[in-house]
Design a binder for these strands. Structure first.
Lengths: 337, 337
DNA sequence: AACCTTACCGGTAACGCTACCGGTTTTTTC
DNA sequence: GAAAAAACCGGTAGCGTTACCGGTAAGGTT
């Protein structure tokens, strides 16, 4: 690694002081035009680039956002894309760290970025995370924090998320409207807010239609195709077999689909199926699976915008909550009327 | 943003010098045991964390790797996961920038990270990139560089990639073995190395089996489901209709599949289909699509390892090339014997 | 001629940290 | 009991940059 050209190199070459070079580069008014020209010409020639480390140290800000996410699946990658786009535009650099759904790695990542590498955080917590001390620590240090997607309730920070309850409602309403009576749900891990909210929408809707909720029709399992497959197999073998399944992710919907096919049941006739996320895959399988679009890219962009607003010291940001409305896309797996 | 506790704070509180605090924290031999204890206790209490910016400025290294990738699709996200895992283990922080397949943004990203933010690069170029001055610039500055997946040929750097030719061969051999005679290929963008290599394997294999190559059976199109769909429709409508299609990505295979189904042709009977990447999706569609597994996670890990080796000054790294062997997974879409 | 602007530039300190040199104090040695 | 060795600690400089203060020389004003 060669030594980068510094302001000092230019100063020595032109036999002027570093202060003057610094001012010349920033077009300060009190530098002679020809001095400026000389400095700029030489800095161009030597391919001078200011050392951001030195600047950050001096100004106590890095212009870097630390983004902590649990993984890089389709939804989160899309959200990161949205964050990236807006942040880049605004002159921020983004540092993405994935925790791989591990509480431990989430802490390690947070700690590292806290070493003065970033001046703010955008966080979506891992499904394993039940203790939020590391998140609170960010706030204790008065470092800006924005939560998105998998938010934490009892922390006061701008939050950008989907209206998960509404997503659950839309899915369940649709299934009821299609004449399904015994609707099961494959919910996610028990402590995961987003999955619980989707389930809440489901429960609300059943209640509103005076449908009995069978405890056996609520299954918690990991965000995982295999688990969903197993769970569905059990559901289909139970004595009170459901006639529809709502899964809170598309991966799980695929797992469910496989189990349904294996059992020789047909969709949408015997069983209705609705997923969540509206990943491209759901329109490619047969039958195509109805799914709730969550506008991940928009959520990402809104998150970055909230961050930027917060950094610019906008008032009333501290516990603002931006809620994006989902939209159900109806496909063959649940359309029987 | 509150002021972080610094070494100076500790020094003042304990009425000792900053040098001593620094040494105490690093367990230097010439510090009294009780002084060490006091320093450590206080630093614990104040939650002291060394300022990495200051350290980086001092040591002229950031322990951060700049990863430049064209997007965050399944394959690249998996590779990044691999890079992340190894890098984190080795104490590096990873900074991921996606160029969104845009040459301009690739340059912007490179430039930013070059501002002393990273001390090395891991790069996979965008499909739009035809000029590599920005990559050469990295090397001109003697900054370590590792290329992976979408490598650049005329640049001397460690390269980690799939044996794309072999992937093309495996796919084509398999189709021939299954009795297909008129095998078309949906290749990627023309200047993209990986797609050309896969095509090279395809061409070699046809030649080895003395099969005529029909110019009309070689279609270049973007890495995109829609384009692949259109291209396949044309292929199926042409007078010399192929009896098998090899696509150099799974997304394209899906597009091809849709066109084939629409035309009312059956797989594998009328048309054989083989994709590339072995994404989870291919085993979920009907019929399941044969695909070439490219071990993206392994490639990512190998890339990070090569980077680390290079940083530790290992000799003979400068133009080492690590080539991962792909493996065809045969599924219903191409198995007719 | 004495003073005052204006235009330009240099020096210093600081951001947080460590390497290096040097200086006290205490302990050891004969 | 004096000299030598060890143990411990402080001060300074420097990484690259800019903010701030101050200084010099040219030109302008009475």
């Amino acid at each position: 690694m060669e030594k980068q050209t510094t302001i000092k190199d230019i100063a020595i070459a032109l036999n002027i002081s570093t202060s003057t070079v610094s001012r010349a580069l920033r077009d300060a008014p009190d530098v002679k035009a020809e001095t400026k020209a000389a400095v700029k010409a030489l800095s161009e020639k030597l391919d001078y680039q200011p050392n951001r480390l030195a600047l950050s140290l001096l100004n106590r800000q890095t212009n870097t956002i630390g983004v902590i996410i649990p993984n890089l699946d389709y939804v989160l990658a899309t959200m990161v894309k949205g964050i990236d786009e807006v942040a880049l535009e605004a002159g921020y650099t983004v540092m993405v760290c994935q925790s791989d759904e591990s509480y431990g790695r989430e802490i390690v990542n947070t700690k590292r970025l806290l070493d003065s590498l970033v001046d703010g955080f955008i966080v979506s917590v891992s499904s394993e995370t039940k203790i939020f001390e590391h998140i609170k620590k960010i706030q204790d240090k008065k470092i800006p924090l924005v939560l998105f997607d998998r938010i934490v309730n009892n922390i006061a920070a701008p939050k950008i998320r989907l209206d998960n309850i509404d997503g659950g409602i839309q899915a369940t309403e649709h299934l009821i409207e299609q004449g399904y009576k015994k609707i099961a749900i494959l919910a996610g891990p028990e402590n995961l807010n987003i999955s619980n909210k989707r389930m809440e929408g489901y429960l609300q809707t059943l209640k509103a239609h005076s449908l009995r909720t069978d405890k056996g029709h609520i299954i918690h399992c990991d965000f995982n195709q295999q688990y969903a497959y197993e769970a569905t197999k059990e559901l289909l073998a139970s004595k009170n077999r459901p006639d529809a399944i709502f899964t809170i992710s598309d991966r799980m919907a695929i797992g469910a689909m496989l189990a349904i096919k294996e059992k020789g049941l047909s969709m949408p006739h015997d069983i209705g199926l609705v997923g969540f996320n509206n990943e491209p895959i759901v329109s490619l399988v047969t039958p195509a699976i109805s799914s709730v679009e969550m506008y991940a890219f928009e959520i990402g962009k809104a998150t970055a915008r909230a961050y930027i607003e917060m950094m610019s010291g906008a008032a009333g940001m501290s516990d603002q909550e931006i809620i994006i409305k989902p939209k159900l896309f109806i496909r063959a797996s649940s359309k029987r009327r």
